[in-house]
Simulated assay, not measured.
Amino acid sequence: MKRLAVYCGSATPADPVYIETTRMVGRALAARGIGVVYGGGKLGLMGAIADSTLAAGGEVIGVIPDALVNMEVAHKGLTELHIVRTMHERKQAFTDLADGFLTLPGGTGTMDELWEALSWAQLGYHAKPVGLLNVAGFYDGLLTFAARMGEVGFIRPQHQKLLIASDDLDDLLAKMAAHVPSRPIVSMKAEDL
């Protein structure tokens, strides 16, 4: 994996574990020579992943819709900043530029990105690993819910392991590197989405 799309929040929660872990992830990815593709903002966890990766000598590519440039305060000090027209173009750029997806804590936008990466894997648009770092148990409920979707039959058996989760970054990256793509429902291309 040469680059990972990192999904995370533009907020800074009161509990310092989230920002501290995000900074650790940025440093760790840079130390491994793994570049970061992310939402292009300089606030919250988004800013922390960018700044910590850059400070450790890593590559950071931001992708931000023009409507959010001022709202999310676009980060101007990145290796590259791509300004796109729509959120869909942003998520497609994440997929095109990265070799996998790493989800850190975040809100609605982070969930949208995570679930779309999983959906696109099921549909055969990509065969890249989708990882989730479960910082301080933040995603315990989501992981229970994802397992329940599989138990009930809403996620096909071959797709029940698409979401790769761990509470340890080294373990998560190792699992992502060992990822074996599942059999997709169909094989879609960008123009099919």
Rank of each mutant, 00 (worst) to 15 (best):
M87A: 11
G131M: 11
D140E: 14
G141E: 13
G106P: 07
G35A: 10
L104R: 11
G131K: 08
I83L: 04
E113V: 10
L123W: 15
G26W: 01
H75N: 15
L133T: 07
E89L: 03
Y125N: 01
G77Q: 14
A98C: 12
G106C: 08
A28D: 00
G26K: 02
F138G: 07
R27E: 00
G57R: 02
S119G: 13
L102G: 06
I61V: 15
V73R: 13
G57Q: 04
V69W: 09
K128V: 05
L97R: 09
P65L: 13
L142A: 11
M149W: 02
M46Q: 08
L29A: 02
T53H: 00
R27V: 00
A117I: 11
M71G: 00
A136G: 02
V73P: 01
A30N: 00
A127T: 14
A147K: 14
M149R: 00
A93C: 03
L133K: 07
M71L: 10
L78F: 08
T144V: 14
G33I: 12
G100Y: 07
A136K: 14
W115K: 02
W120R: 05
H126P: 05
L133Q: 05
A121L: 09
A56F: 01
L114Y: 06
G35T: 06
Y38C: 15
L78S: 09
E113Y: 10
V130Q: 05
I34P: 02
Y125W: 14
N70E: 12
G40N: 10
A127Y: 03
A56H: 01
F138Q: 06
W115L: 15
Y125Q: 14
F145M: 11
D96P: 01
S52Q: 05
G44C: 10
G40V: 12
G47V: 14
E116I: 12
I83T: 13
A74N: 13
A67C: 11
L97E: 03
T86E: 07
R32V: 03
H82D: 09
F94T: 02
H82R: 15
V73K: 13
N134H: 12
E59H: 08
A117R: 10
K42T: 12
E72Y: 01
A147L: 08
A50F: 04
N134G: 12
G62V: 07
Y38P: 01
G107R: 10
A31E: 13
M46F: 06
A56N: 00
V84A: 09
W120D: 05
G106E: 04
G57P: 03
G137Y: 13
D66Y: 04
V130D: 05
L78N: 10
A31R: 01
R90G: 01
T144G: 13
L45H: 04
V25K: 03
W115I: 15
N70L: 11
P129W: 13
V135T: 15
M71R: 10
L68I: 03
G35M: 06
G33R: 12
E80Q: 15
A121G: 12
T103E: 06
G26Y: 00
D99Q: 09
D66G: 00
L78W: 06
T86R: 09
L104M: 12
V37C: 11
D51H: 11
G109N: 01
M149K: 00
N134V: 11
L104I: 11
G39P: 08
L43G: 09
V25G: 02
G62K: 05
A67R: 13
R148C: 01
V69R: 13
L29S: 00
A50L: 09
L78E: 08
L132F: 06
A67Y: 14
